[in-house]
């Protein structure tokens, strides 16, 4: 525990020195949300199904981009620079390093979601603590599966310089292929395999569960199947994860 605490402090100090990522993770979606809704600022809005679905896609963006950039891309760039290998021989466990990094950025993710939700409730002029709690719950439920799925990127022999381009393409692609026709379970599973659909779907169902109706049973089955696939992908990737750089010798 002492090691994880010390590692968390190191990653926290390092993260605070790289404030630019917050522009991409938080300021960009927040600015876009305000721009989209500037005409209704201050008018009291109800949280109908459409509003909640709209909100869930913003959460999905913040969660996916934060976990990809701050956790997966950071792990790959640290490994390729040799820092990860050096740290491994100081700590003695790759699990402690990974769990510290995930913990710090999961905490940051929740701060980002909280700030976004404050803006959201200010714009809609509707304050409800269930929004804050639902966002926290979504981050608890989806963060680990998303990290596990994204960890497949650590197996790619990709240069650090190309990594940000790749993640931008993946995020863009995830939004581009967001919706397949809804209907049968298999179609829903294929749709939900897209991480944006997975996060937004989870968030939407939870929000609907909080505000309107019970969570749909087909959604739960679909979610369990996709989470299992994400976990298998993650298990495979993490078991193959090496502390050595993949793209070049360090």
């Amino acid at each position: 525990m002492r090691e994880i605490k010390a590692l968390c402090r190191i990653y926290f100090i390092n993260m605070l020195s790289n404030k630019f990522v917050f522009i991409f993770n938080l300021l960009l979606p927040t600015g876009y949300f305000i721009f989209q809704n500037h005409r209704v600022i201050g008018k009291k809005m109800s949280f109908n199904e459409q509003t909640l679905a709209f909100l869930s896609y913003f959460w999905a963006y913040i969660i996916l981009v934060t976990l990809l950039n701050n956790v997966i891309v950071a792990i790959i760039s640290q490994r390729e620079s040799g820092f990860y290998k050096q740290l491994y021989f100081i700590v003695g466990s790759k699990w402690q390093i990974l769990s510290s990094q995930v913990s710090v950025h999961w905490f940051i993710l929740n701060i980002e979601l909280l700030l976004f939700n404050v803006v959201f409730m200010s714009v809609t002029n509707h304050w409800d603590m269930r929004i804050i709690f639902a966002a926290f719950l979504v981050s608890v439920i989806v963060s680990l599966p998303i990290i596990l799925l994204s960890s497949i990127l650590v197996l790619l022999p990709i240069k650090i310089e190309s990594l940000n381009v790749l993640t931008s393409v993946l995020i863009f692609g995830a939004f581009l292929f967001l919706k397949l026709p809804e209907g049968k379970l298999l179609q829903d599973v294929v749709t939900m395999f897209n991480p944006i659909s997975y996060i937004a779907g989870t968030a939407d169902e939870l929000l609907l569960g909080f505000f309107h109706r019970a969570i749909a049973s087909q959604f739960i089955w679909c979610w369990l199947i996709v989470t299992l696939i994400y976990s298998l992908v993650g298990y495979f990737s993490v078991s193959k994860f090496t502390v050595n750089a993949v793209a070049k010798r360090v």
């Binding site: 100090i13 390092n14 040799g82 820092f83 290998k85 491994y88 021989f89 100081i90 360090v250």
Partner: peptide, 29 residues
């Protein structure tokens, strides 16, 4: 590996940490 200290040829650290913070990290970890 847990009982081995290995200094790599191209030593890399987090550039934003100070020398004091880096050495404290070694000491704590």
């Amino acid at each position: 590996p847990k009982q081995i200290a290995y200094q790599l040829q191209q030593v890399q650290f987090l550039p934003t940490l100070t020398v004091a913070q880096t050495l404290k990290m070694y000491q704590e970890l």
